[in-house]
Design a protein around this nucleic acid. Structure first.
Lengths: 198, 198, 198, 198
DNA sequence: GATGAATGAGAATTCATTCAT
DNA sequence: TATGAATGAATTCTCATTCAT
């Protein structure tokens, strides 16, 4: 029962507990009671820091995506194909642990997919990442590292989707690490050839 | 003589209604009452055709994936890269209507991801499709259409994941058709170069 | 699916099926469907022969008690203590099979005990048996076989209650036959001494 | 600081309300809603104190039998026949009020008679009481107060059954107090003679 | 008469949220 | 500020009864 007076600290603490609870029980099976228990506080206290379960859910998703963006959108932009591909490889090589979150977030996503503001918000996250890839691709085109016929704007968004698909299948189907590593390497090789191509 | 009812027809009718209800309200917000209402029958009647909400959900997922498999795993195997890529393009070019289902199925998936039998079943669907791609890739390698250094076994499974990612983003983020078409074309072009590569 | 045209025959057939169903599943777990199934007829057909589940229940209880009365109230009245006690012994020595019914009937009784007509009816059954015992006791008093100080009217009703208690415990607690036989013999011996007494 | 609640007090309060509801509506017709209403609390509150209807039912039965045992198995053991018979008489002379419970408990019993643990538990209650009577009878035999030919072990269990039968009929058939008193006195007289006998 | 599909009221149970302490 | 007991709307599922065929 931590006596964290600082409101933000307490919110963070709750969000961590909430995530743990989601991972333990799944989103649909996680009640406010379980979250409170996990956080070592009373149910009522939860409501002092988050107005509703929905708000809590949104907050947790936000944290997740913030970290996600930080991880992907590293700066400065990569200027060689090799560095870019290495970055992609690293991004995709999530541990079993990290991939545990994935089904959770899809459960949360599924439950909220009719909420316009929610979806728009996360659409924008992926759009931003898409733009990041687009920018990098364009740099690589400009410096002659990759195929000039590439439509960087479109392909940037495509890459996000594809990578998400790979991460998704790892998380959902608990693809073991050995296979996942091979899949990532094969993807990267495909991209290398596809980008260099011609 | 009792009312003559075609049990299969009724089950299909209910499954359609169920799908409509899921689309209207989302999976988590769809109650058995709403499904019954959508089907124009009484709540109790639902239970004459499906033993539980779970069974109904599994049935609907099964139908979905059956159609999905039929659509993807067309026979005989493609023997030119062009034909294969055309098939992929066609598979990915789902209408707005078709893509509506996607978030639903991810919500269902998310809710069931702790259920081993459920996940194993659908893992196997994707594995089958992966094998289908693998077989096709191997044929293309064997007849010299594509790069010999490709690991067809691994890449087959990779392709499923990537395509799923693209479909997923279309469905979740309601990417409009014009953009989606461009994304698909760009993906196919990337694959073409990547596969032919070197 | 017996084609019994005779209404009474059909009712009997249904009552037997109903009893079997009660024994198989217990009263509270026996639905009209199960009864119909057990009888090899359709649910709707049941309602052609009995207006409601309640009526069916009452009918079955009635049959049970009719047999019960027949078994207890044998004529002519016993005129020696020995014969009377032998009769009591025989009445109490129910088989395991017969005693299976007992918890069922108590479940039915419990469920109907607020229904005045129901209870009055079965009160009268026990009262009749009480009177039968009373009459026998009075005969035995009159011919000097038993203690003159006995109040035959009261004791007759007491005996019914006591015997019912013994039967009840056998049925509910599945007292095995060996012990039950000893219990019955001991009861009879107690009665013999109590009745002869002084 | 949360509302201060004495959990045991509340459980007792609920059990009382539950009993009242059972008496008002019968066991099968008593819903959790009705119990809550009777207790003056919300349906959900019930579940804070008892996990399920089954648990509540078991608890209420347990309380009943605990009181029952306390009432019957008084210590020290009686050492004269007179005292023992007086105790039996007192045990049997239940008020109309007390006997109201009886049909309820038989309804509960009937509904649970397929549940092995339930029946075993309550069988053991009656067995304990049987042993108590057995012990008393043996003391009386040993000090020459009653007939040496009595099998105290068997008769002890018989007495429980018989007394239960008398109580049962009083409760089920609402035998009025005047008659019940006469029945009890006549039973006691029968036992006196039967036990002293010869 | 016979059928059994359809009905819908009603049951037990859960859980986000409130609020007295 | 913190608590957790209380709430009651909402959910899934059952089953006696009805009625079109």
């Amino acid at each position: 029962m931590p006596k964290i007076v600082n409101k933000e600290k307490m919110q963070e603490h709750i969000l961590e507990a909430c995530l743990s609870a989601f991972i333990k029980h799944g989103f649909a099976n996680t009640t406010m009671s379980k979250i409170a228990q996990e956080a070592g506080i009373a149910k009522g206290t939860l409501y002092l820091y988050f107005d509703s379960k929905e708000e809590l859910t949104h907050a947790i998703t936000e944290v997740y995506f913030e970290k996600f963006k930080e991880r992907i959108m590293v700066m400065p932009y990569f200027v060689t194909l090799n560095d870019f591909l290495k970055h992609i490889e690293k991004s995709l090589l999530m541990s079993d642990d990290e991939s545990t979150f994935i089904p959770i977030f899809f459960e949360v996503f599924g439950s909220n997919f009719r909420s316009k503001p929610f979806m728009q918000k996360y659409q924008s996250v992926f759009d931003e990442i898409g733009s990041y890839y687009t920018h990098t691709l364009q740099l690589l085109i400009d410096n002659g590292a990759i195929n000039k016929s590439i439509n960087s704007k479109v392909l940037g968004r495509v890459l996000v989707s594809m990578f998400d698909g790979i991460a998704l299948h790892k998380g959902f189907f608990k693809i073991d690490n050995a296979e996942h590593v091979m899949m990532v390497k094969e993807s990267v090789q495909l991209f290398r050839l596809g980008l260099e191509g011609e």
